[in-house]
Amino acid sequence: MGEKILYAFISVFLTINYGFLLNGLIRKIYARVGRRHGIPFYQMYIDLLKSLALRTNIRHGVMFYLGPVFRFTGGIGLFLFMPVIFGSELFANFSFSGDLLLLLSFQFFGTLGMALGASESGHPNSAIGVTRGLAQMTAVEVPFVMALMAIAVQYQSISLHEIVAAQQGGITNWTLFTNPLAVVAGMLAVLGSFMRPPFDVVLAPQEIPIGPPTEYHSNYMVYLQSNRAIYPLAKSILIMNLFFGGATSFGEMMLKTFLVIMWSVFVGVSFPRFRVEQSIRWFLGIPLIIGVLAIVYVQFFLN
């Protein structure tokens, strides 16, 4: 068990760095679409250091402090209970002890923690942002859970490890090809959790709130930013494992997660953002229908 923990630390460390660099890269891609060069790809590190280097900070009580911690924990937790690289002991994490349901709760854990923390700051913009965030999050989860259920039914398992294992042995074994409807539903739903347009009204600076992080700075900001690096990555590892056959090497993981994140970037660069009730309506529309169809499909055609 001891070495498991050590391995977990190593894998968290490696992935978080990959996450930072990936974030930098994505911002460079954003910039290139806007016809400019953009920040250096290592800028995230300097920002972190800078935030750490602030000499003063303002606290608004315990919950204010715990909010980012929860958020960060949510990201790490999501990450830790997934097999990052199938078959690798180092990157297997604690996937043996987790299942999809635990992962789902970790997704919410961060957001809820954030909600408590941001509300504690007393800033109305934070509160509005959190309300929006939770509302949208809930809407996102519905089609996503549909896709999950379809997959769980398909593979007769809620253990991610088993799901990945079932997809090994060739590209045609991926859920993408065995259950395309679930993948479509899942991929559409997952757009909502990357905080990119058109579903980023939670963090939208123009539409009243700057979102939950309005009051956060210095080391709180460090937590949030680290979470920004690890959470989308963890999420895309989950997607990769669920839909795209997992990864058997670090390189494959990097490629697949990059592509998953690029999917959100691909959409995000091209669209403005929805209002929160519009995105809710959207998630509860087409993705949900496809998700239901996926379950139906699995239920009646696969088994």
């Binding site: 300097i46 303002i58 600076p205 992080p213 700075h217």
Partner: peptide, 22 residues
């Protein structure tokens, strides 16, 4: 902050809230 001068190159970024701005 836009393509012509692109201050992001110099590590300059935009923050909407004073808490996070330097």
């Amino acid at each position: 902050m836009t393509p012509r001068f692109d201050a992001y190159r110099y590590g300059i970024q935009w923050r909407p809230t004073p808490r996070q701005a330097n």
